[in-house]
């Protein structure tokens, strides 16, 4: 599988504040990948680098085989990019905006524009100034998709969208793109939304990608375990490298990001463990645990 995005050793700082530090990241073609991370981790910065809006201080970046620094216009022409802040000319109508953008993209697809506007129930005659925040985001999404980009970069696309609009984005856009073999990189804090639309997630923390794999595998490799301990065995050192979420006199709740059958057997055979129970966890638990372990490290 070819990677549509390849980032190696990416470094970028805003003044003295280092945002990205030696970031490595690959985005396989045809995947819908969610980019997660705490506030200030550098998610939007990474997308802006990929969208040619920022020039990295160091490292190499390849977008669709192109270097954004040297081929900025070609990259912009090939990707679709919806930033978190959509400042469109307020006086334009939606139709005006589409007509304005059309000459810049040779692969402009009027039929696709009409389909998406109908899907999102947007009136082409409506002025951008009169659109709600969510409608403006949808309008920007239409503009980003109108030229059939091979790669779509979305920064917080679901903010301001009502559940119905969100569902239309999932079903009518992202699934459509996935079926068409297009690649999507989505930044969002809504893990539920990412679980719904993405097949891979990447976790960005402290300026680096700490985790990047498909969601099922990530969830399969993690486990939250509640253990009852023999009071005589306390203090006790658990096997592996769990994140200790909670401890009591003879109980503990552990979160493993590298859970395996061998680790389960080792824990079961530990003489200090009188009982163990596997608790439920979701993608958000995995994200929080991963960030906690990164910060501890």
């Amino acid at each position: 599988m070819n990677d549509v995005i390849q980032v190696r050793g990416l470094e970028l700082a805003y003044g003295k504040e280092e945002v990205l530090s030696g970031l490595d990241f690959d985005l396989p073609a045809g995947s819908v990948t969610g980019l997660l991370g705490p506030n200030g981790a550098g998610k939007s910065t990474l997308l802006r680098v990929l969208a040619t809006e920022l020039r990295p201080d160091a490292g190499t970046v390849s977008v669709l085989g192109l270097d954004p620094r040297r081929n900025a216009r070609a990259v912009r022409r090939a990707i679709g990019w919806v930033p978190d802040r959509v400042d469109l000319p307020r006086w334009m109508s939606i139709d005006d905006h589409m007509r304005f953008l059309r000459p810049f993209y040779p692969t402009w697809d009027k039929a696709e524009v009409a389909r998406l506007l109908e899907l999102f129930e947007l009136d082409p005659r409506a002025r951008i100034a009169d659109l709600s925040k969510g409608q403006r985001m949808l309008e920007a999404l239409v503009a980003a998709l109108a030229h059939s980009p091979r790669l779509l970069l979305l920064d917080e696309p679901f903010s301001g969208l009502d559940p119905f609009a969100r569902r239309r984005v999932f079903d009518g856009v992202l699934d459509h793109l996935r079926d068409a073999g297009k690649s999507v990189l989505v930044v969002s804090h809504s893990i539920n939304d990412l679980e719904r639309c993405c097949d891979r997630v990447a976790l960005l923390s402290e300026g680096r990608i700490t985790t990047c794999e498909d969601i099922e595998g990530l969830q399969r490799r993690s486990a939250r375990v509640a253990v009852s301990l023999d009071p005589d065995a306390v203090p006790w050192s658990p096997p592996g490298e769990p994140i200790i979420e909670e401890t009591g006199a003879d109980t503990a709740t552990l979160f493993y990001l590298d859970w395996s059958d061998a680790l389960a057997a080792e824990l079961a055979n530990d003489r200090a463990v009188r009982d163990l129970d596997l608790l439920s966890r979701d993608l958000e638990d995995v994200l929080v645990a991963s960030v906690a372990r990164e910060r501890t490290a």
Binding site: R73, A74, P83, R85, V86, D87, P89, F104
Partner: peptide
């Protein structure tokens, strides 16, 4: 002033 410069800057033109 209007913020539209960012939108224009994303166009594939120099």
């Amino acid at each position: 002033a209007s913020g539209a410069a960012d939108a224009l800057g994303r166009l594939p033109v120099s």
